[in-house]
């Protein structure tokens, strides 16, 4: 009855997401939620009536305050993540995000075939981001940049601090605040769609692979099968990885 007995895998614990990456991730998630919610309010505030004097209410004021405060956190959190892309572990490295090698494109194509077209074949075994995910995160970083530029560009004229004023060239380049605001508003939808797909895919990978995808952003660990580890099948587009495992083999 060998067929009825499933092969029991030995799993190896890999520390994938370091604590700074995890903290970055959840700060980003919270701040993005706050930015989207307050952003919607600012774009189209709720209908309120008041018998009180306007001076006693500050609803829009608070919404904008939260939006701006969250924007600052978002920006510096983003800066930190870029920094961590140079000093963090290989899964946090900037090479994970920018398609610069043939291998990267090959893996993206493979992920596309396996996870989107659902073709049959050997499952890919990336431990950190797969190449497709890495590339999508690269697009989100670009969207972050667009939002920071347009957002602080709009904010520049309201602020007396030098920092937002550094962005004053953005509305000037776009010809005014009207278009800048619209780009800021349109780009927001990218984040909403991203969140939906991102959360779904986390469920998906956890469900299909059973390697701790969901909890990895909590504790930082993912688990890979011993034989996969040995066979070195997991393909991360990071050249550092190969030398790291080679070194391990050598030792």
């Amino acid at each position: 009855m060998a067929q009825n007995t499933a092969p029991i895998h030995r799993l190896r614990r890999v520390y994938v997401w370091e604590q700074p990456v995890r903290i970055y991730h959840w700060i980003n998630a919270l701040v993005l939620l706050a930015l989207i919610a307050t952003g919607f309010y600012i774009a189209s505030p709720l209908a309120l009536q008041s018998h009180k004097e306007a001076t006693n209410a500050f609803t829009m004021g608070w919404m904008r305050y939260i939006h701006f405060a969250a924007a600052y956190i978002f920006f510096f959190n983003f800066l930190f993540r870029i920094y961590w892309g140079f000093v963090g572990n290989k899964y946090a490295n900037w090479r994970q995000f920018i398609p610069f090698s043939k291998k990267f494109f090959k893996e993206m194509w493979y992920v596309f075939r396996m996870d989107i077209l659902m073709l049959k074949g050997r499952e890919h075994m990336s431990i950190g981001h797969n190449a497709m995910a890495g590339f999508i995160y690269f697009l989100t970083f670009i969207a972050f940049l667009v939002q920071c530029l347009t957002g602080f560009g709009l904010y520049a004229s309201m602020s007396s601090w030098w920092f937002p004023k550094l962005f004053a060239w953005v509305p000037a380049l776009l010809g005014g605040d009207i278009l800048t605001r619209q780009i800021h508003h349109w780009s927001m939808w990218f984040f909403i769609l991203f969140v939906v797909i991102h959360v779904y895919l986390v469920f998906y990978h956890d469900y299909v692979e059973g390697r701790g995808e969901m909890s990895s952003m909590g504790g930082g660990w993912k688990f890979i099968e011993e034989e996969v580890f040995e066979r070195n099948h997991h393909q991360t587009p990071n050249p550092e990885k190969k030398t790291a495992t080679e070194n391990k083999k050598a030792s």
Partner: peptide
């Protein structure tokens, strides 16, 4: 150098979140 918004006398209503919905409403 300033937005019309920044010198608007209706600005307190904006900050309070009180808005005209249609041109003929209360």
């Amino acid at each position: 150098s300033k937005r019309v918004h920044d010198s608007c006398y209706r600005r307190p209503f904006y900050d309070a979140g009180l808005f005209v919905e249609t041109f003929d409403d209360e």
